[in-house]
Amino acid sequence: MKPADICIAVLVAMIWGLAFIASRIALDELSPELMTALRFTIAAAPCLIVPRPKVSWPVLIAISFTLFLGQFLTQAYGIAGGVPVGLTSVVVQSQALFTIGLAAILFGERPSRMQTIGIAIAAVGLLMICGTVGYDFSVSAFAVLMISPICFAVGNLLLRRAQGVPMFDLSAWLCLVAAIPLLVLTLAEDGVQPTWHALSHMSGVVLLCMLVIGGISTCTAYWLWGRLLRDYPAAQVVPFALLVPFVGSAASSIVFGETFGPLRLAGMLTVVGGIAVMLLSRRAQVLPKVVGA
């Protein structure tokens, strides 16, 4: 990879890691539904100028409801439920484990020996993390969060149905498709008056966080990542996603004073180690092409 593109890959990973921090701050004032709806409403702004990609509506909806709506709404519920941001960033990246597993089950794509070892390592790490659940956050919050990497994995596989279309256009329209039902859900769950009150009394800090999450983390970073995957083999690009949980965890420790007990820290490192084995194996090209927060 060119040095400039390496810098872009590192920058995208840092943006996605820091987006977990921005999400946590925004959730202090906004409900998970409203925060996620605003995220995609902002990110869908390019739909005003870019055409709908040549993808059928059923495929577009299926990808959007898993890769975007399902993944990020359950992330928001998990964080709002008390799951630490650093831990959330690690759990979300376990999507690589589920992507390879589902590809094997649904498409008969047998993982290589190294990928199988990586899956086993990451699974052990998740079990170690599960052993720490129930102390500083609820089991239900963690269970909801675990839906996020599964949706992520399903969306990754569905994304194969939309190959050959401009990534920027596709990302924008996926955001629009996710934003509409999320806005309806917000009004149904929160009510019209509380929703308006939350929007009209939004602090400058939260507004800035939402602009960063929607405009930079979702819209711009996904486009840059897609461009890298267009120009280079996935095996060269995807490993940079390993930086995301490290950035998220480090930033959470600095901003929120998040600490990790020995078992949880060991579990997080084990998950990341397992993901590294999977991503760096020879068959890394079958791994997900879209990652983030």
Rank of each mutant, 00 (worst) to 15 (best):
T41Q: 11
A44S: 12
A45W: 03
P51W: 08
V55L: 07
W57G: 07
P58C: 11
V59M: 12
L60W: 02
T66K: 01
F68V: 12
L69T: 07
L69C: 10
L69P: 02
L73H: 00
Q75E: 15
Q75C: 10
A76D: 11
I79L: 06
I79A: 03
V85S: 07
G86S: 03
L87G: 03
L87I: 04
L87D: 02
S89Q: 04
S89N: 02
V90N: 09
V90W: 03
V91R: 06
V92C: 10
S94P: 07
Q95I: 00
A96Y: 14
A96T: 15
A96E: 09
A96M: 14
F98A: 10
T99C: 03
I100H: 06
G101M: 12
L102I: 13
L102F: 14
L102Y: 07
A104Q: 09
A104L: 13
G108L: 07
G108K: 00
E109L: 14
R110Q: 13
R110F: 11
P111E: 03
P111Q: 04
S112V: 15
I117Q: 09
G118E: 04
G118I: 02
I119E: 01
A120Q: 04
A120V: 12
A120T: 08
A123R: 06
A123D: 11
V124L: 15
G125S: 12
G125A: 09
G125V: 00
L126M: 13
L127H: 00
L127Q: 05
C130W: 14
V133F: 05
G134M: 04
D136H: 14
F142N: 01
A143P: 01
A143T: 10
A143Y: 10
V144Q: 06
L145I: 03
M146T: 13
M146G: 11
S148Q: 08
S148N: 06
